[in-house]
Amino acid sequence: MTKVRIKVGPRQYSIACGPGDEEKVARFGKLIDENYAKLGTARAAQESENVVFAALFMADELDEARTALGDARTELAELHRELQAARDDLANATRHASERSEEDKARAGGKKAELRAEIETLRKAEERARMDNAALKAEIAALEEQARHQHDLFGGPAEDAALSEALAEKLEALAARAEKTASELEGRAEPS
Protein backbone atom coordinates (compact mmCIF):
# COMPACT_ATOMS: atom_id res chain seq x y z
CA MET A 1 0.00 0.00 0.00
CA THR A 2 1.16 3.50 -0.79
CA LYS A 3 -0.05 6.77 0.64
CA VAL A 4 -1.10 9.87 -1.27
CA ARG A 5 -1.44 13.30 0.32
CA ILE A 6 -4.48 15.29 -0.76
CA LYS A 7 -5.67 18.77 0.29
CA VAL A 8 -9.36 19.49 0.90
CA GLY A 9 -9.97 23.04 1.97
CA PRO A 10 -7.49 24.09 4.67
CA ARG A 11 -6.57 20.51 5.70
CA GLN A 12 -4.21 17.87 4.34
CA TYR A 13 -5.08 14.14 4.40
CA SER A 14 -2.92 11.08 3.91
CA ILE A 15 -4.86 8.44 1.90
CA ALA A 16 -3.75 4.81 1.52
CA CYS A 17 -4.21 3.27 -1.94
CA GLY A 18 -3.09 0.31 -4.01
CA PRO A 19 -0.04 0.44 -6.27
CA GLY A 20 -0.84 2.31 -9.51
CA ASP A 21 -3.87 4.12 -8.02
CA GLU A 22 -1.87 7.12 -6.76
CA GLU A 23 -2.70 9.35 -9.72
CA LYS A 24 -6.41 8.50 -9.56
CA VAL A 25 -6.60 9.24 -5.80
CA ALA A 26 -4.78 12.57 -6.31
CA ARG A 27 -7.24 13.47 -9.10
CA PHE A 28 -10.24 12.61 -6.88
CA GLY A 29 -8.74 14.70 -4.03
CA LYS A 30 -8.44 17.65 -6.38
CA LEU A 31 -12.08 17.18 -7.44
CA ILE A 32 -13.22 17.17 -3.78
CA ASP A 33 -11.17 20.31 -3.13
CA GLU A 34 -12.77 22.08 -6.12
CA ASN A 35 -16.25 21.26 -4.78
CA TYR A 36 -15.18 22.36 -1.30
CA ALA A 37 -14.15 25.72 -2.81
CA LYS A 38 -17.73 26.15 -4.12
CA LEU A 39 -18.83 26.73 -0.54
CA GLY A 40 -17.03 30.07 -0.58
CA THR A 41 -17.95 32.11 2.49
CA ALA A 42 -20.88 29.86 3.39
CA ARG A 43 -18.65 27.37 5.20
CA ALA A 44 -19.90 25.70 8.33
CA ALA A 45 -18.10 25.88 11.67
CA GLN A 46 -17.35 22.15 11.65
CA GLU A 47 -14.88 21.04 8.97
CA SER A 48 -16.62 17.70 8.62
CA GLU A 49 -19.84 19.45 7.60
CA ASN A 50 -17.96 21.35 4.90
CA VAL A 51 -16.58 18.08 3.52
CA VAL A 52 -20.13 16.65 3.55
CA PHE A 53 -21.37 19.66 1.57
CA ALA A 54 -18.53 19.17 -0.94
CA ALA A 55 -19.57 15.51 -1.18
CA LEU A 56 -23.19 16.62 -1.77
CA PHE A 57 -22.03 18.83 -4.66
CA MET A 58 -20.24 15.84 -6.14
CA ALA A 59 -23.26 13.60 -5.56
CA ASP A 60 -25.44 16.14 -7.40
CA GLU A 61 -23.01 16.18 -10.35
CA LEU A 62 -22.90 12.38 -10.30
CA ASP A 63 -26.70 12.22 -10.32
CA GLU A 64 -26.87 14.62 -13.29
CA ALA A 65 -24.24 12.57 -15.11
CA ARG A 66 -26.16 9.35 -14.44
CA THR A 67 -29.40 10.97 -15.66
CA ALA A 68 -27.63 12.22 -18.80
CA LEU A 69 -26.15 8.74 -19.29
CA GLY A 70 -29.61 7.16 -18.94
CA ASP A 71 -31.05 9.64 -21.44
CA ALA A 72 -28.16 8.95 -23.82
CA ARG A 73 -28.71 5.18 -23.49
CA THR A 74 -32.45 5.63 -24.20
CA GLU A 75 -31.68 7.78 -27.22
CA LEU A 76 -29.05 5.28 -28.38
CA ALA A 77 -31.56 2.44 -28.06
CA GLU A 78 -34.11 4.44 -30.09
CA LEU A 79 -31.48 5.22 -32.73
CA HIS A 80 -30.57 1.54 -32.80
CA ARG A 81 -34.25 0.64 -33.40
CA GLU A 82 -34.49 3.24 -36.17
CA LEU A 83 -31.27 1.93 -37.72
CA GLN A 84 -32.60 -1.63 -37.64
CA ALA A 85 -35.88 -0.47 -39.19
CA ALA A 86 -33.93 1.34 -41.93
CA ARG A 87 -31.87 -1.81 -42.54
CA ASP A 88 -35.05 -3.89 -42.73
CA ASP A 89 -36.61 -1.37 -45.15
CA LEU A 90 -33.47 -1.46 -47.29
CA ALA A 91 -33.44 -5.27 -47.30
CA ASN A 92 -37.14 -5.34 -48.28
CA ALA A 93 -36.63 -2.73 -51.01
CA THR A 94 -33.64 -4.67 -52.35
CA ARG A 95 -35.60 -7.93 -52.32
CA HIS A 96 -38.60 -6.32 -54.08
CA ALA A 97 -36.31 -4.72 -56.67
CA SER A 98 -34.65 -8.07 -57.30
CA GLU A 99 -38.04 -9.78 -57.66
CA ARG A 100 -39.24 -7.07 -60.06
CA SER A 101 -36.01 -7.42 -62.03
CA GLU A 102 -36.52 -11.18 -62.33
CA GLU A 103 -40.15 -10.65 -63.38
CA ASP A 104 -39.05 -8.09 -65.98
CA LYS A 105 -36.44 -10.54 -67.30
CA ALA A 106 -39.04 -13.29 -67.52
CA ARG A 107 -41.51 -10.99 -69.32
CA ALA A 108 -38.78 -9.82 -71.68
CA GLY A 109 -37.81 -13.44 -72.38
CA GLY A 110 -41.44 -14.34 -73.09
CA LYS A 111 -41.88 -11.29 -75.32
CA LYS A 112 -38.64 -12.16 -77.12
CA ALA A 113 -39.85 -15.71 -77.79
CA GLU A 114 -43.20 -14.33 -78.93
CA LEU A 115 -41.49 -11.92 -81.34
CA ARG A 116 -39.26 -14.71 -82.68
CA ALA A 117 -42.34 -16.86 -83.35
CA GLU A 118 -44.04 -13.94 -85.10
CA ILE A 119 -40.94 -13.28 -87.20
CA GLU A 120 -40.88 -16.94 -88.21
CA THR A 121 -44.60 -16.75 -89.12
CA LEU A 122 -43.93 -13.63 -91.21
CA ARG A 123 -41.02 -15.34 -92.98
CA LYS A 124 -43.23 -18.28 -93.85
CA ALA A 125 -46.01 -15.93 -95.08
CA GLU A 126 -43.47 -14.04 -97.19
CA GLU A 127 -42.20 -17.32 -98.68
CA ARG A 128 -45.79 -18.37 -99.47
CA ALA A 129 -46.45 -14.97 -101.06
CA ARG A 130 -43.32 -15.34 -103.22
CA MET A 131 -44.39 -18.82 -104.27
CA ASP A 132 -47.92 -17.58 -105.06
CA ASN A 133 -46.46 -14.65 -106.99
CA ALA A 134 -44.20 -16.97 -108.99
CA ALA A 135 -47.13 -19.33 -109.69
CA LEU A 136 -49.30 -16.42 -110.83
CA LYS A 137 -46.54 -15.12 -113.09
CA ALA A 138 -46.21 -18.58 -114.62
CA GLU A 139 -49.98 -18.77 -115.06
CA ILE A 140 -50.04 -15.35 -116.73
CA ALA A 141 -47.19 -16.38 -119.00
CA ALA A 142 -49.07 -19.57 -119.88
CA LEU A 143 -52.26 -17.59 -120.60
CA GLU A 144 -50.34 -15.15 -122.76
CA GLU A 145 -48.79 -18.03 -124.64
CA GLN A 146 -52.21 -19.63 -125.02
CA ALA A 147 -53.63 -16.36 -126.24
CA ARG A 148 -50.95 -16.10 -128.93
CA HIS A 149 -51.60 -19.64 -130.15
CA GLN A 150 -55.38 -19.25 -130.18
CA HIS A 151 -55.07 -16.08 -132.16
CA ASP A 152 -52.87 -17.88 -134.57
CA LEU A 153 -55.29 -20.80 -134.89
CA PHE A 154 -58.57 -18.98 -134.96
CA GLY A 155 -57.41 -15.43 -135.57
CA GLY A 156 -60.67 -13.67 -134.80
CA PRO A 157 -61.15 -10.42 -132.88
CA ALA A 158 -63.95 -11.89 -130.72
CA GLU A 159 -61.58 -14.51 -129.40
CA ASP A 160 -59.00 -11.78 -128.71
CA ALA A 161 -61.56 -9.83 -126.62
CA ALA A 162 -62.54 -12.92 -124.59
CA LEU A 163 -58.90 -13.78 -124.02
CA SER A 164 -58.12 -10.20 -122.97
CA GLU A 165 -61.05 -10.24 -120.57
CA ALA A 166 -59.88 -13.53 -118.99
CA LEU A 167 -56.37 -12.16 -118.75
CA ALA A 168 -57.65 -8.97 -117.08
CA GLU A 169 -59.63 -11.04 -114.55
CA LYS A 170 -56.54 -13.09 -113.73
CA LEU A 171 -54.45 -9.94 -113.34
CA GLU A 172 -57.05 -8.39 -111.01
CA ALA A 173 -57.16 -11.59 -108.94
CA LEU A 174 -53.35 -11.56 -108.76
CA ALA A 175 -53.32 -7.91 -107.66
CA ALA A 176 -55.99 -8.59 -105.01
CA ARG A 177 -54.00 -11.55 -103.60
CA ALA A 178 -50.80 -9.47 -103.56
CA GLU A 179 -52.59 -6.67 -101.67
CA LYS A 180 -54.08 -9.14 -99.19
CA THR A 181 -50.67 -10.76 -98.55
CA ALA A 182 -49.02 -7.35 -98.10
CA SER A 183 -51.74 -6.30 -95.63
CA GLU A 184 -51.29 -9.51 -93.64
CA LEU A 185 -47.52 -8.97 -93.51
CA GLU A 186 -47.92 -5.37 -92.39
CA GLY A 187 -50.49 -6.35 -89.73
CA ARG A 188 -48.17 -8.95 -88.26
CA ALA A 189 -45.14 -6.67 -88.34
CA GLU A 190 -46.81 -3.96 -86.21
CA PRO A 191 -45.68 -4.15 -82.52
CA SER A 192 -48.40 -5.11 -80.04
Results as ranks from 00 to 15, higher is better:
Met1His: 09
Met1Pro: 08
Val4Ala: 08
Val4Ile: 08
Val4Trp: 14
Arg5His: 06
Lys7Asn: 10
Pro10Leu: 03
Gln12Val: 01
Gln12Lys: 00
Gln12Glu: 01
Tyr13Phe: 15
Ser14Gly: 06
Ile15Cys: 04
Ala16Ser: 14
Cys17Lys: 04
Gly18Phe: 05
Gly20Asp: 13
Gly20Val: 07
Asp21Gly: 04
Asp21Phe: 14
Glu23Pro: 06
Lys24Val: 03
Arg27Gln: 13
Gly29Glu: 01
Leu31Glu: 14
Ile32Val: 15
Asn35Glu: 05
Ala37Gly: 01
Lys38Ala: 06
Lys38Pro: 03
Ala42His: 07
Ala42Glu: 09
Arg43Asp: 02
Arg43Asn: 06
Ala44His: 11
Gln46Ala: 14
Glu47Asp: 02
Asn50His: 09
Val51Asp: 02
Phe53His: 11
Ala54Gly: 05
Ala54Asn: 06
Leu56Glu: 03
Phe57Lys: 05
Phe57His: 09
Ala59Val: 08
Asp60Cys: 04
Leu62Thr: 07
Leu62Gly: 03
Leu62Phe: 08
Asp63Glu: 14
Glu64Arg: 11
Thr67Gln: 04
Thr67Glu: 09
Gly70Gln: 10
Ala72Asp: 03
Ala72Lys: 07
Arg73Pro: 02
Glu78Met: 11
His80Val: 00
Glu82Tyr: 01
Gln84Cys: 01
Ala85Trp: 04
Arg87Met: 07
Asp88Tyr: 10
Ala91Asn: 10
Ala93Phe: 10
Ser98Asp: 12
Ser98Cys: 05
Glu99Ile: 12
Glu99Thr: 10
Arg100Thr: 01
Ser101Gln: 14
Ser101Leu: 14
Ser101Lys: 08
Asp104Lys: 07
Lys105Glu: 07
Ala106Gly: 00
Arg107Cys: 01
Ala108Met: 10
Gly110Phe: 12
Lys111Asp: 10
Lys112Trp: 06
Lys112Arg: 12
Leu115Tyr: 13
Glu118Tyr: 09
Glu120Gly: 12
Thr121Cys: 03
Thr121His: 10
Arg123Gln: 10
Ala125Arg: 12
Ala125Phe: 06
Ala125Glu: 11
Ala129Cys: 08
Ala129Lys: 09
Ala129Glu: 09
Asp132Trp: 09
Asp132Arg: 15
Asp132His: 15
Asn133Gly: 07
Ala134Val: 02
Ala134Ile: 02
Ala135Leu: 15
Ala138Met: 05
Glu139Gly: 07
Glu139Leu: 13
Ile140Ser: 07
Leu143Trp: 09
Glu145Asp: 12
Glu145Ala: 11
Glu145Gly: 09
Gln146Thr: 05
Gln146Met: 03
Ala147Glu: 06
Arg148Trp: 00
Arg148Leu: 04
Asp152Tyr: 10
Phe154Ser: 03
Phe154Pro: 02
Gly155Ser: 06
Gly156Leu: 00
Gly156Asp: 15
Gly156Val: 08
Ala158Ser: 13
Glu159Asn: 06
Asp160Tyr: 09
Asp160Ala: 13
Ala162Phe: 05
Ser164Val: 05
Glu165Trp: 10
Glu165Ser: 10
Glu165Thr: 13
Leu167Cys: 02
Leu167Thr: 00
Ala168Tyr: 12
Ala168Phe: 07
Lys170Cys: 03
Leu171Asp: 00
Ala173Val: 08
Ala173Ile: 08
Ala173Cys: 02
Ala176Pro: 02
Arg177Cys: 01
Glu179His: 10
Glu179Ser: 14
Thr181Met: 09
Thr181Ala: 14
Ala182Ile: 02
Leu185Asp: 01
Leu185Glu: 03
Gly187Trp: 07
Gly187Lys: 15
Gly187Ile: 04
Gly187Ala: 14
Arg188Phe: 00
Ala189Arg: 13
Pro191Trp: 11
Pro191Ala: 06
Pro191Met: 11
